[in-house]
């Protein structure tokens, strides 16, 4: 079995490789919080064991074997994090360091039991993918939030830097994975203005670099996103959440059966002109304006 130290290095190189290839010794030193000479020392040892390739003055990259070893460590790390949050109930900003220690003290059998206990979950609490037993990582079209353009609507998928303070900040802003944000403005220094649940939020570039996100294609919004009923396409179902109209509108909605919690079927919506919605087994014709003031979430017809 490889030493804890070796595994730490392989893990760090593997993570770094996503953005930097080959990985320079100085970034490695920064990531691991050790001195440059210490890094150089270790690199020689890893190269000798055939785990990495080292090009002087350029940097290091993992060999196939090194990569497999790194992924195993990453898998164990993320499984432990899941265990700590889901089973032990620790907060997501407190589990990284503990997992760093636990990841090295585990046998393949234990790893398998842990995965099974966690129902083979495929992400860590911070949204990063857990490689499977064979070291395969589920392909995802994710990019750092800082790389998206103005006007794009994206879903946060993961936080790559698992630093307690950063995580707490992100949680406070409501940017935890699955949050959907729209990029309203992008300054020259990379600062982003985001729209999140109708709120404005300014995000510096460094933080935006640590947040991985994925594009939300129009029409394919998350199932729990609240949208005006007028956005439901013909044949789609929705669950009524709330209203944005005045009191008089509320009375009419309630008496026509549009109560919160009701299932609504959009029978006809041509985008312009009145829409036809079915609620409580009754077809109701509604003007576009009226339909826009009734807020629903999309529902999968199979449910």
């Amino acid at each position: 079995m490889r030493s804890e130290r070796v595994e730490e290095y392989l893990e760090a190189i593997s993570k770094r490789q996503k953005t930097e290839m080959p990985v320079s010794t100085s970034s490695l030193a920064a990531d691991l919080g050790v001195s440059l000479p210490a890094v150089t020392d270790m690199i020689r040892r890893l190269e000798a064991e055939g785990l990495i390739n080292y090009e002087p003055n350029r940097g290091v990259s993992l060999t196939a074997e090194g990569s497999r070893a790194a992924l195993t460590t990453i898998r164990r790390h993320r499984l432990w994090e899941r265990f700590l949050t889901d089973i032990l109930g620790l907060r997501w900003d407190k589990v990284h360091d503990a997992a760093c220690r636990l990841e090295h003290a585990i046998s393949p059998d234990m790893e398998e039991s842990l995965a099974s206990l966690l129902s083979y979950t495929d992400t860590c609490p911070h949204g990063n993918p857990i490689p499977d037993k064979n070291g395969h990582v589920k392909d995802q079209d994710v990019r750092p939030l800082s790389e998206f353009e103005v006007g794009q609507k994206v879903r946060i998928s993961a936080v790559v830097k698992e630093d307690g303070r950063l995580l707490r900040k992100i949680e406070k802003w409501g940017l935890k994975p699955k949050a959907i944000v729209k990029i309203k403005r992008k300054d020259d220094d990379g600062t982003l203005e985001l729209k999140l649940d109708g709120q404005k939020l300014l995000l510096d570039k460094t933080t935006a670099d640590y947040l991985m996100a994925i594009c939300v294609s129009p029409g394919e919004e998350a199932a729990d996103e609240e949208i005006p009923m007028s956005k439901l396409q013909t044949g789609e179902f929705g669950v009524l959440k709330s209203y944005t109209g005045g009191k008089e509108m509320l009375g009419r909605c309630l008496s026509m059966g549009f109560t919160p919690g009701s299932t609504v079927k959009m029978v006809e919506n041509f985008g312009r002109g009145p829409v036809l919605a079915k609620v409580h087994d009754v077809e109701v014709a509604l003007g576009q304006g009226m339909a826009a003031r009734i807020i629903v979430t999309r529902m999968n017809p199979q449910c």
């Binding site: 509108m249 009419r252 009754v282 009226m290």
Partner: peptide, 11 residues
């Protein structure tokens, strides 16, 4: 005043 249509379409 805004015209607001809301009516049942009977079967």
């Amino acid at each position: 005043e805004r015209a607001v249509l809301m009516m049942e379409l009977p079967l």
